[in-house]
Amino acid sequence: MEDVGSVVAFWALAVVTLGAALVTALVRDLVRAVVALVVSFLGVAGLFVLLSADFLGVAQALIYAGAIPVLIVFAIVLTPRAARDNAETGMRWPALVLAGALAGLVIAVAVATDWGDGAREGFRETASAIGEALLNRYVLPFEVASVLLLAAMLGAIVLVRED
């Protein structure tokens, strides 16, 4: 990606995504953390579009930025006495060290590896190709995923049912 538009879009989306993720981790109020999380998910959706994954960008905006925050907000308002506190446990510093070390390791590997010239063309449009792949090569995982969704839905209903 050489053109100015892509470079500017990448840096802007990267700052928004990472900044919103940091706000999610640091803000005190859990509802505000959810709002920042939505911004971060929308930033990732923009990065998907930048990577010419148009279908995934839309799916990300619908599912991650739309459906999952609704679930999270439901969980927050259904647990009222558990103050909307976003605080850490006593494991804050060990967790920080571990997360930082892991991120540093992955970054070191990503920078040190030779990934080739990377001068590939982007995809023209992906929705029809993904649909074809899901119904040909990946039809078994596709069916298994539908069973998994059904099982998860039933499990969620059973778990919160009032006896």
Binding site: A14, A21, A25, L30, N86, T89, A99, A103
Partner: peptide, 23 residues
């Protein structure tokens, strides 16, 4: 990949250190 690693680090920190299950 670097952006993804940083995002993963933030997520891992939250998963390990948050007090609230929703966090």
């Amino acid at each position: 990949l670097v952006l993804s690693a940083l995002l993963f680090g933030v997520g891992l920190f939250m998963a390990l250190a948050k007090r609230n299950i929703v966090g």
